[in-house]
Design a protein around this nucleic acid. Structure first.
Lengths: 147, 147
DNA sequence: ATGAGTTGTATCTGTCTTTGTTACAACAAG
DNA sequence: CTTGTTGTAACAAAGACAGATACAACTCAT
């Protein structure tokens, strides 16, 4: 199973908000046309990012803006905001191993720590990458294309 | 989205095969009763592990066995065998960002390298953990419970 | 050769998640 | 009060996953 596109869409949205702030009003419609998905999809993601305290959304008048400095928003923050997984568990464990089997009885405690190591490795790397990195690279590419 | 339980089931199956080899015939029915899922689910996973060259399955007479030494089978090998994701991509990218938007036009190349770093971090950790580690811990727990 | 036990695989089902879409009340501001 | 927007509900379509039944193909002991 893949991590849902909500994650890459959310990153895209952050990039748009920062790149176009001042020049355009960042409505869900505007963002939807850059990402190329339905505006409700954008609004749903905006709600999740808002609930996580990463952005603010102006009800009525419209427009989204980023609530923190860009280098304080990591990929992990975004991931946790939009990836609504039970308990934040990356791995789905089979629920009912047989307690009467010596292996079934112990598999959970054997694996839990190992799976956590893998998840931690992934999350640690996610924590090293910020929206600031994304915006910086995006601006550089845009500049190159202007020439 | 979570990584499907096929992965933890596959690890469980490896542990069973090694712990019970010699004492029991490792049929899909036997394994299914330890994992506590339908035997067809086990057979499907056994096929994937077999296709990856990690186990052999005796058609007709029945029984599975491990094809390599335990410390040569990493979590990543098992993950790649059972997690049938397109191109091995952990992240699902939104397909059609708007090419007429400066951000939409560049988001892919900006993100691809960053997402790959995250995926690599996860896979690197998976490569450090082997079935030998699992069996060792499992045996230790079993011994403790015998006392 | 035959029967018993097993694998390999197809098929169908139910459930869940994701995404797309329409619709509309709540809201802000000119 | 009109216009543009957000927040959210409701529903549909598609896909993944896991459970279940069924059965042909296969192996081996008798």
């Amino acid at each position: 199973m893949q991590i849902s596109s909500r994650f890459t869409i959310a990153i895209h949205v952050f990039a748009c908000i920062d790149v176009f702030k001042g020049d355009y009003k960042l409505t869900s419609d505007f963002l939807a046309s850059s990402v190329n998905v339905n505006s409700v999809v954008i609004r749903r993601i905006l709600q999740q990012l808002k609930a996580a305290g990463l952005i603010t959304v102006a009800r009525g008048s419209g427009g989204a803006s980023i609530a923190k400095s860009l280098d304080e928003i990591t990929f992990l923050d975004v991931y946790n905001a939009v990836e609504c997984v039970e308990e934040g568990e990356l791995f789905h464990f089979h629920e009912n191993p047989n307690p009467n089997c010596p292996v079934g009885r112990n598999i959970h405690r054997v694996l839990d720590e190992k799976l956590m190591r893998v998840q931690n490795a992934m999350e640690a790397e996610m924590q090293k990458i910020t929206i600031a990195d994304v915006v910086e690279d995006t601006q550089r590419y845009i500049q190159e294309q202007v020439k």
